[in-house]
């Protein structure tokens, strides 16, 4: 579904990605794991075209996107949920939810989204900025489920959240994968990633250095690979 080849990215003079290469199959959940500053978030951003400069190849469903503008990448069917969640403070919850335009078929209906995230229904009229951290994360994910994008890039969806919320997000990810979404996760929480993802790419110094498929002893193998 997604083929990333020798992806390099720069912020000004600093060369952050040095040739990231990986593939994702339709319907998979994969994680990008690595230390702070390894280039996981930059990988996501540069797939979206949000880095000032990028080279290499990003093919989505056979279509080359390396020269596409960010909105064209999104229109091709890739949605991004950033680490900082980017809930718009000047918009209500429902306005945040309806902000991303539909870009294709296969998105969830508002009703289906409210079933997954009951809190959002109650909070619909309130300001986005008044939500708790967990609710903001739910809104940030919910927002990209109704657009029809089939590949979701989730940057640290569990960061800073209480264990009970992390658990809820894990269940939600299982639920949306059953609906056929393909998901890429960036995670610091290796235990969480081991539980929800099928395959794991280890990112080090702007490159993918290893791939580990989930199976017996995944967590131990991941920890060994990450040297933690």
């Amino acid at each position: 579904m997604l083929e990333v080849r020798d992806l390099q990215a720069w912020y000004g003079d600093s060369h952050i990605l040095h040739g990231v290469t990986f593939d994702i199959q339709e319907g998979e959940v994969v994680s990008l794991l690595g230390r702070n500053g390894a280039g996981k978030t930059t990988t996501m951003k540069s797939i979206m075209g949000l880095t000032p400069r990028r080279t290499g190849s990003v093919k989505f469903r056979g279509k080359e996107l390396i020269d596409a503008r960010t909105d064209q990448v999104a229109r091709a069917g890739i949605a991004f949920c950033p680490e900082e969640r980017a809930i718009f403070a000047s918009l209500t919850v429902i306005e945040n939810l309806l902000l991303p335009p539909r870009i294709g078929d296969g998105g969830l209906s508002l009703e289906a989204i409210y079933e997954l995230f009951p809190n959002l229904r109650e909070r619909a009229g309130g300001q986005g900025s008044k939500l708790s951290g967990g609710e903001q994360q739910m809104l940030a994910i919910a927002r990209i489920l109704r657009t029809g994008a089939r590949l979701l890039l989730l940057d640290e969806p569990t960061e800073g959240l209480a264990p009970v919320i992390v658990h809820q997000i894990g269940r939600m990810i299982q639920s949306i994968r059953q609906r056929g979404f393909t998901i890429v996760l960036v995670e610091q929480n290796v235990r969480f990633a081991a539980a929800v993802a099928d395959r794991h790419f280890i990112v080090e110094q702007g490159k993918v250095t290893d791939m580990i498929a989930s199976g017996t002893g995944t967590l131990e193998r991941l920890q060994a690979s990450l040297r933690i």
Binding site: T70, F80, P82, F88, S90, L99, I144, T147
Partner: peptide, 24 residues
Amino acid sequence: TRLGARLRAATENAPMVQAFGINV
């Protein structure tokens, strides 16, 4: 309006609005 919501959102965080497929 929806258009106004896009305008307000882009005022806050234009790259993110563009990442939703809106031609900022």
